[in-house]
């Protein structure tokens, strides 16, 4: 870990001013991604701006029923928040499936939105990586790519987005509040992360110096059940090989509304719109779920070691939908 300057900020405008829209300055809250990568010499900030003292640690229900989450709310506090457990169980489940108790105690909401890929070539400062060093090539493309993405990949990058929280947010729908030198703006969560395309180094839509101040969740789907299923080699403390987050509302055995997002298989938190269309107004049956799973993976592109993720993701989808429907039945036995 090389040398860098450090400064605390007391409020948002001071944080933004201190940052100065300088590419070499980074905000730090939980630090679980940033310090990991600084130690690996993958990130080399000249200065850190500590935002832990900013008044961004609250979770509040807005008048319109949406839930507004401050940037520095920890994963643990968010997962166990009564409103989250009651109205957004998918988010609670996804958060608790990620990392470890200690990391969840440190990691923050905005930090998790900004989580970096676990691609081993990205994390090795001496390997070729277009995401870390534009134009240097991609060692993963023909390398050990068992953990890599099959959806949203490009010729430049196949790195997987690792977050569980973001999968839940992609399914639920959310709005990010961003504040920077040019003021405050909002952006739909699903527009925030970019596909790698030709420029994998541009991971998101943040402008220089901008800070994520809040994540506001859409109002939950009424009467829906939810399930987050994470498939991985060991039982805990590991990133997903494939995960599926499902929110399903069922009426008279028919799917009224479905939200589905995938993790562990895509270059960004992956909302599976095609699958949702395949589910809409269809009977809540395994056959329907399987059709949705087919639709979700129809554009998947495998590489040498990760072709297994395509059937695995389908399995995660089918099971998550089944469990979400069960959850909906349990929550609404009259339907």
């Amino acid at each position: 870990m090389r040398s860098f300057a450090y400064r605390t900020a007391e409020d948002i405008s001071q944080a933004v001013t201190t940052h100065g829209a300088d590419d070499h300055v980074a905000y730090v809250a939980g630090g679980t991604t940033l310090l990991d990568l600084v130690k690996l010499d993958v990130m080399r900030p000249s200065q850190l701006v500590d935002i832990n003292r900013l008044p961004l640690s609250e979770v509040e229900t807005l008048d319109d029923g949406r839930l507004r989450i401050g940037a520095t709310v920890t994963n643990t506090d968010l997962a166990h928040h009564p409103e989250v457990k009651a109205r957004y169980p998918l988010l609670s489940q996804a958060l608790l499936s990620g990392a470890s108790t200690q990391l969840r105690n440190m990691a923050t909401t905005a930090g998790n939105v900004m989580q970096r890929t676990r691609c081993p070539y990205y994390r090795d400062a001496s390997a070729a990586c277009n995401r870390r060093e534009p134009g240097s090539g991609c060692d993963a493309m023909h390398g050990i790519n068992r953990m890599h993405a099959v959806l949203g990949v490009s010729d430049a990058c196949i790195a997987t987005h690792p977050s569980d929280m973001c999968v839940a947010m992609a399914a639920i729908g959310a709005t990010l509040t961003l504040e920077g030198p040019e003021g405050v703006r909002e952006m739909a969560f699903n527009d925030f992360h970019r596909l790698p395309g030709e420029q994998p180094e541009k991971e998101h839509e943040l402008r220089p110096g901008e800070l994520i101040t809040h994540v506001t969740l859409d109002t939950p789907v009424e009467g829906a059940g939810a399930h987050y299923l994470k498939l991985r080699d060991r039982a805990s403390y590991e990133f997903a090989l494939a995960s599926a987050g499902a929110v399903v509302a069922v009426e008279d055995g028919m799917i009224r509304e479905a939200r589905l997002a995938l993790g562990g298989v895509a270059t960004k938190p992956w909302r599976a719109h095609e699958a949702e269309q395949a589910l809409h107004d269809q009977p809540a049956s395994i056959e329907t779920f399987e059709m949705a799973a087919e639709a979700a993976l129809q554009d998947a592109v495998p590489h040498e070691h990760n072709a297994f993720k395509i059937p695995l993701a389908r399995q995660a989808i089918v099971r998550a939908l089944r469990e979400a429907c069960k959850d909906a039945e349990n929550a609404n036995p009259q339907r």
């Binding site: 676990r118 081993p120 070539y121 390398g143 050990i144 953990m147 080699d233 060991r234 403390y237 590991e238």
Partner: peptide, 13 residues
Amino acid sequence: INNNYSDYIVTSH
């Protein structure tokens, strides 16, 4: 490639 405790998987609790 997997020279760490995250990518080299050992049995967890």
